Amino acid sequence: MVQGRVVYALLLREILTRYGRHNIGFLWLFVEPMLFTTGVTVLWTLTEALHGSSLPIVAFALTGYSSVLLWRNMPARCIGAIDPNLALMYHRNVRAIDIFLARVLLEAGGATISFVTLSLFYIYIGWLDPPADILTVAGGWVMIAWFGAALGMFLGALSEKSEMVERLWHPISYLAFPLSGAAFMVDALPPAARKYILYVPMVNGVEIVREGYFGEQVRVHYDFFYLLACCVGLTWLALSQVAVVNRGVTPE
């Protein structure tokens, strides 16, 4: 498949451009998120952060902050992605969606490798028990990745029309962190607040991941079909905007 090879080539180019061949090179793809997650784990542990659950703080940092890196980094990499790759658009097989796909796949891969590696390490040293249901963890992780990819391509396409998208995304992404479910369990919130916090798509994904990770140790709240509808709707918006951008791009 031609487009598959195009995306693969763009993926390799992105890795070399971003990480180079020096020091540990490609390993930074997942070492960087691992360092972030480990740093947050240590910080939360030292400060004895409250997270509304009897679960170990390490478990919360891993399942929570790893999910944040998954959905938040994709839009950051897609915004403004077309301009530095305009020269590549001269080739008829390279389209805007290929550039976005290469970037979201790279971010998803790095976050996933980091999450799996840290999980195995923490389980090995006794900080975590093995996941209760790996398939549920994988399902929740895929849904968060889908949401992040769709959001990334949508904002990436909009950023080609206005510079305000990039300026607004950074503060919005930081404001969204405390609402994303990374640092709390929905069950710990007042009953009246649970209904409203579940309108935040990422919260549903994090709750699914934690259900798979901790099983009966936790009581989770989520609406899978709402999350699915958000992903489908956002994907449709993203693809429509990417198509508009693709028609308007003038290769260098």
Rank of each mutant, 00 (worst) to 15 (best):
V203I: 12
D83H: 09
A193S: 07
T117S: 13
A183G: 11
F154W: 07
Y122P: 00
R95F: 08
A87M: 02
S159I: 03
Y199I: 12
E166G: 08
N85I: 07
C78E: 10
S180D: 12
P75V: 13
Y122T: 05
G152K: 06
A76C: 05
A182F: 08
P84Q: 15
A96C: 10
L106I: 04
I99P: 00
S162I: 01
G148P: 05
R103W: 00
A76S: 07
E160H: 02
A132F: 11
S180W: 09
W146D: 10
A138T: 05
A150M: 06
F177D: 06
A76P: 01
A188Y: 09
M202G: 12
P191L: 09
G156Q: 01
T112F: 10
V142K: 07
S162E: 03
A96D: 02
S114H: 10
E207Q: 09
S119A: 04
L118I: 08
E166K: 03
T117F: 15
P130E: 11
E207N: 01
R95I: 07
I123C: 14
L158V: 03
I197S: 05
I134Y: 09
G109S: 13
G110R: 11
L118Y: 00
W127Y: 15
G156L: 01
M185R: 06
A138M: 13
L168C: 04
V116Y: 09
R72P: 02
A192C: 00
A182M: 02
G148C: 14
W71E: 03
I79C: 06
V104R: 05
R95A: 08
L101E: 05
D83T: 11
D98W: 03
V94H: 08
P75L: 15
L128Y: 02
D98M: 03
F184M: 13
L135G: 11
F147G: 00
D133Y: 10
S159H: 12
P75S: 11
D129E: 00
V116H: 07
L135R: 13
Y196L: 05
F115K: 06
R194I: 07
P190Y: 12
I97C: 06
F147P: 00
G126P: 01
N85R: 10
G152V: 06
N93F: 12
L118D: 10
H170E: 14
N85D: 14
P191W: 15
L155I: 01
A111P: 01
A192Y: 13
G152W: 02
T117A: 11
I113P: 04
M202R: 11
F115S: 14
A192P: 01
L158N: 05
